[in-house]
Amino acid sequence: MMLAGYLVAVLAGLFAVVAIYAMLSSLPNAPDYFSVVGVSPIAALLVPPLGMFIYFLTIVLTGMQTLVFALIAEFFSLRNALLHMMFGAIAAVAGFALIWPGASENPERWADMGIIGTAGVVAGLVYWLIAGRDAGFRRPLFERA
């Protein structure tokens, strides 16, 4: 379930990024590239290899840290939704830092890091719904009714 949860969570995170940028592009004084990112899924739908490239790139950028977080959650039987959402945000921001190396020093990228972190929260929630609620190698002795 970990792999299925991760793949669906990445897809949900990508949808969340697009939705957040689309909503923020309607705000006054929003940067111009917000509207470009908000309509970019149309290009990904018209050119499926582009969409698959974005999906694969996201998996490559967030895979290692997500694997570490998932193994920690499994080993310690961490089933808290907020913890999975925090893990998703950290993994997403870390993946963003891999693609934008100097993002933390550039004040223009702080908004992007917040948006990506919020999408990571959504992805963490989706992962928790699929695989995180039953995390852990240890199972309780008695099932609760």
Rank of each mutant, 00 (worst) to 15 (best):
125 L>A: 15
63 G>R: 04
41 P>G: 02
104 S>K: 03
97 A>R: 12
138 R>K: 13
93 V>A: 05
133 R>M: 09
88 G>Q: 06
83 L>H: 03
132 G>T: 00
15 F>V: 07
142 F>E: 01
19 A>P: 03
42 I>H: 07
56 F>A: 15
12 A>G: 15
69 F>C: 12
13 G>E: 12
26 S>I: 00
10 V>W: 01
30 A>N: 02
38 G>C: 09
25 S>Q: 09
115 I>F: 04
89 A>W: 04
56 F>C: 13
79 R>A: 01
94 A>H: 08
82 L>N: 14
85 M>R: 07
27 L>E: 11
46 L>M: 10
102 G>F: 05
53 F>M: 10
109 R>T: 12
98 L>W: 13
115 I>Q: 08
54 I>V: 14
137 F>K: 01
88 G>F: 09
40 S>N: 03
34 F>W: 14
62 T>H: 08
113 M>Y: 05
94 A>S: 12
118 T>I: 00
4 A>K: 15
124 G>N: 10
5 G>M: 01
30 A>H: 04
59 I>S: 05
131 A>I: 00
31 P>Q: 02
57 L>H: 08
80 N>C: 06
74 E>K: 13
107 P>K: 06
137 F>S: 03
24 L>M: 14
138 R>T: 09
20 I>S: 11
112 D>E: 11
118 T>C: 09
7 L>K: 13
47 V>R: 07
125 L>E: 14
132 G>F: 06
23 M>P: 00
77 S>D: 13
11 L>C: 15
106 N>W: 02
7 L>C: 15
46 L>G: 14
